[in-house]
Amino acid sequence: MGVRASSPAVAAALLLISGCHHGGAEAARPSAARLVQQVPLTGPGFPPDAAAAKDLLARLTVGWGKNWQTYKRENFGRYWSDDTDAVGGRNGCDTRDDVLRRDLSELREGDRNPCVVVSGVLHDPYTGKTLPYSYRKASQIETDHVVALGAAWRGGAYAWTPQRRLAYANDLDVLLAVDKQTNQDKGSRTADRWQPPRAEYRCEYARRYVGIKAKYGLSVTPPEKTALTGMLATCPA
């Protein structure tokens, strides 16, 4: 059974997609803005604090990755998706715009479409760089999966349903806006093979990494666990 076209949520979602102002759109725009804001951009209690992360790490399954040779990016969906099962899902916005709205400061959103981030500034957690963002210019900012899709695949995502993999790829708890070159240098490397160049961020990186692994029931390799234990040891007491 379809949803009636008069549904306020449907009308707001259509406005977000179209960005139109004619036909009463001015009156509907506040509803669209509320739709953007009504879904949290971070899960409750995420990332875990250091003590909780250490406890979660101790309970993760330890084993060597599997099925690495079958990994393909499209296994997690081809495009960003406003997925219902992901943190931030179903607010009518592109996942990347949600990440930018959460992680950038000095934020300016679109007048016609509140989903669109027009400009802002990223204080990159991985390097400490200050990176400007403009919608109309080439950006040095990319969206990183903290536990990379390839690493998640090897840690157990190969056995998930396509819907669960799509949710993972669009879960804001899994994602960070970061420096483009640093993200590309990281690739699909796990925590034993890559750590943020900025040492001050390694505690939070490990907390996020472990929180993601625990949330999705992903395994860690023995070297990965050792590296995460070391990074968590740098957290303030």
Results as ranks from 00 to 15, higher is better:
175 L>G: 06
76 F>R: 08
236 P>M: 06
41 L>Q: 08
187 G>Y: 04
211 G>S: 02
177 A>F: 00
135 Y>T: 00
118 V>Q: 12
180 K>A: 12
82 D>Q: 07
236 P>V: 04
56 L>R: 07
54 K>C: 02
146 V>S: 05
9 A>L: 15
94 D>P: 09
14 L>E: 05
43 G>H: 01
131 L>V: 12
80 W>L: 09
164 R>D: 14
63 G>M: 05
141 I>M: 03
42 T>Y: 03
207 R>D: 09
88 G>Q: 12
104 L>Q: 03
14 L>C: 05
4 R>S: 13
80 W>H: 08
65 G>F: 02
31 S>D: 14
215 K>C: 02
7 S>E: 10
21 H>Y: 08
31 S>F: 06
196 P>D: 14
93 C>A: 14
97 D>I: 00
207 R>M: 05
237 A>K: 13
174 V>W: 10
56 L>Y: 04
3 V>F: 12
32 A>C: 15
138 A>S: 14
215 K>R: 14
153 W>L: 15
203 C>G: 11
194 W>H: 15
75 N>G: 07
179 D>S: 11
142 E>D: 15
66 K>P: 10
236 P>Y: 04
141 I>E: 00
38 Q>Y: 01
89 G>S: 06
237 A>N: 15
49 D>T: 08
3 V>N: 10
48 P>L: 05
70 T>Y: 07
183 N>R: 07
157 A>Q: 09
206 A>V: 09
112 R>A: 11
78 R>N: 11
203 C>H: 08
69 Q>E: 15
205 Y>A: 01
151 A>S: 15
209 Y>S: 09
158 Y>D: 03
136 R>H: 10
155 G>L: 12
171 D>I: 07
166 L>P: 11
77 G>N: 14
199 A>G: 01
